[in-house]
Design a binder for these strands. Sequence first.
DNA 1: GTAGCCAACATTGCATGCAATGCTACAGTG
DNA 2: CACTGTAGCATTGCATGCAATGTTGGCTAC
Lengths: 243, 243
Amino acid sequence: MLATVASNSDKQTERLVLALRKRILNGEFSPGERLTELGLVSLLQASRTPIRLALERLANEGLLDVIPSGGFRLRSFGLADIRDAIEIRGVLEGTAVRFAAERLESAEELAQVKRLTLEATMEIPITLEGFARYLETNKRFHRELWRLAKSASLFRELEHACKIPFAAPEALVFGVADLEQSTAFIAAEQHRAIVEAIENREGARAEALAREHSRISRRNLEFALRSKELSNRLPGLTLISNQ
Amino acid sequence: MLATVASNSDKQTERLVLALRKRILNGEFSPGERLTELGLVSLLQASRTPIRLALERLANEGLLDVIPSGGFRLRSFGLADIRDAIEIRGVLEGTAVRFAAERLESAEELAQVKRLTLEATMEIPITLEGFARYLETNKRFHRELWRLAKSASLFRELEHACKIPFAAPEALVFGVADLEQSTAFIAAEQHRAIVEAIENREGARAEALAREHSRISRRNLEFALRSKELSNRLPGLTLISNQ
DNA sequence: GTAGCCAACATTGCATGCAATGCTACAGTG
DNA sequence: CACTGTAGCATTGCATGCAATGTTGGCTAC
């Protein structure tokens, strides 16, 4: 038995994917930097084979670029890339809620989203320690919307699209009290409207609402990039090159 | 030097991905079947390491499912899955042409799509040997639309979404003369309209048109599934389970 | 001084052995 | 007859060695 704490899973590769992703999003590498297998061996306490596999996975998550002659480098994201990724997520979520509206069989299927809407709303007087819980509730709400679309294909694409840094709905609802509070109220109203639209089988309305809803992430992103304070609190922002 | 024809690339893994994908889409495996590394060693004349890598890639293309206890199995597609995949492609292409309309700087950027539109139209009296050329032109037209969106993120997602069998725009424009001919005329008109919309910066119209355009693939798919004759010519159809 | 070439080094791609784990089939027991 | 336990087998996960290829830095020639 080795000394490594097999906490996440008993698979090395899983552990490495998580560890590497965390480090990348933590800004521990610079954009464009080559990640060599041997260099990671000492850093992550693992052998080359699982490391290579982890790199492969992160590459088709979109975090790494494949170097044509072999190996991987940290992808460099422009602001435009992230904005587009968020908009794509909005488009896909729009499709999800449209599907949900089109495919709804009974209003009872909406019990869970409604519960989560309410829950998130009641968490809105956001305290510092309640912040993580709010994020979690928000994430679960969105996942539940995805589920209601009743489409494995769409679910897959949504998961794929949300791997891009800051593209996921739960990303970037950060810790600036003022902005956060008002944003949370707006988000809650949008959530309510989306669910209402689904319930009424108003597919087009639901789609439009979900697209607009994703704009919250975009505004937050742009705000964060302008704020020095937030840049310190979100080290991953260094992944985004200015131009 | 080994006897294998290193035609595609000098990388084993690349070759294996292509070879395996081809065999899968050729219906050489049954849905749900487990693909063992050792079994593929003898079939593909390669060692386990690159085979594992190829399996990994096909898995996140969506062709294979990961078995929780290890290994991969051929994913089983329902008809609904493919229909959704086509619709998702339509949604993403809709976004692409909307972006293209919104981001168009000069009408000259459209020279290439216009050329391709014309080219495809002139190829429409489709002969048997011209069929592949028509497909190729069609594919290039769509790729050119993707390019005009000027979004690396969106391009990535489109490529990802089109890896699902029969989801790509060039899939399933098959060889039944009657249907084919009339379908090609309809497609050509839709292509023309999409380009026109982009040129006029009518983003919403372009998006709606592209979505509708993807329905051609859906109709073709459903027709193919009803036709015994086509089932023989398209062995990959066996990938789609009836329910 | 600059451009181009060459050699040493760094890094990956691939092959293969080994250990661990899951799976299957069979036998024994209630 | 059904169910459970177990032993053997099939299969993957990981480690590591080797060969091939790319890369870098210095040296030479112009």
